[in-house]
Design a protein around this nucleic acid. Structure first.
Lengths: 143, 143
DNA sequence: ATGATTGTATTCACCAATAAACATTTCCAT
DNA sequence: ATGGAAATGTTTATTGGTGAATACAATCAT
């Protein structure tokens, strides 16, 4: 279970060190993909395999399906930690998340998310994310 | 499994180098064919066989099926990597995908796709790939 | 508080992948 | 056969990725 928030920096070669608390659970190899709301998702391998198999079943003849599958696979990359606990984020993924230097890594249960610091602050300041609203959403979900 | 996105260039003789990460899985010989949405598909031999079998089973009596089968087989060429990891793309295929110089190669699970850079950008900017739609697709798939 | 240990940031140097230019061979038309 | 064009092959340069070393900061134990 990934939890917590960390501020790290991306070096000039596009590498970022993964918080040491995340490393064990991540394992040797994992997948980084373009995520929603201008962030990146990091999936442990087992989670990704499930996704992969579902996506492979989608029919080639359906236009929407093709677009969806392209988005997912083209936007994915397999990573492994180097011996200092870092990964390299390919350029297209960095651009997707507007990642330049200051980066926030957050643990979100089964996955890790990467945000540019600005985007993360903005997202948090957004009025629609007030605690009251969160509370009421939780109520709706029966939590 | 092919994943990721790469920007390469086609030289004056119509050759392009295949990303090194794709080479192992592609093997010695493979099939390049006209794909949907103005791109080219590259299939490893085993995958092509699978596709071939599916296509052969389509009813000859169906007009659409005949067109589809012709499209796939007529547009197909067998290729192999030269000793620098490049392939030559026949002119008719290059025209089909409007490939000139700047080219994007994307991994899409079982195949590789070749796009002209402009076409790929345009395709991605297209409204039909909104994140909301992607999100709802994911929900459908239970992701 | 102090020193030891671990985690993160930064920089440098090396190696591999790709691009571009150039050379050679093959094939076709005359 | 011969010239020319296209295909194939080779060499060199450049870029970008990878690994290692160092420096700095934070945490922990005593």
């Amino acid at each position: 279970m990934f939890i917590g928030e960390y501020n790290h920096t991306i070096d000039i070669k596009g590498r970022i060190s993964i918080p040491s608390k995340f490393r064990d659970e991540l394992g040797e190899r994992f997948i980084v993909t373009k995520g929603m709301d201008n962030c990146l998702f990091i999936y442990p391998m087992e989670e990704w395999k499930v996704l992969e198999n579902k996506l492979k079943q989608l029919p080639l003849t359906n236009k929407d399906a093709r677009a969806f599958v392209r988005f997912f696979f083209a936007g994915a990359t397999e990573c492994e930690l180097d011996n200092q606990g870092r990964i390299r984020i390919p350029n297209n993924l960095r651009e997707h998340a507007s990642l330049d230097k200051d980066t926030v890594l957050i643990g979100v249960a089964t996955r890790i998310e990467l945000w540019s610091q600005e985007q993360w602050q903005q997202y948090n300041n957004d009025a629609n994310l007030s605690y009251d609203e969160i509370a009421s959403k939780m109520a709706e979900l029966g939590i």
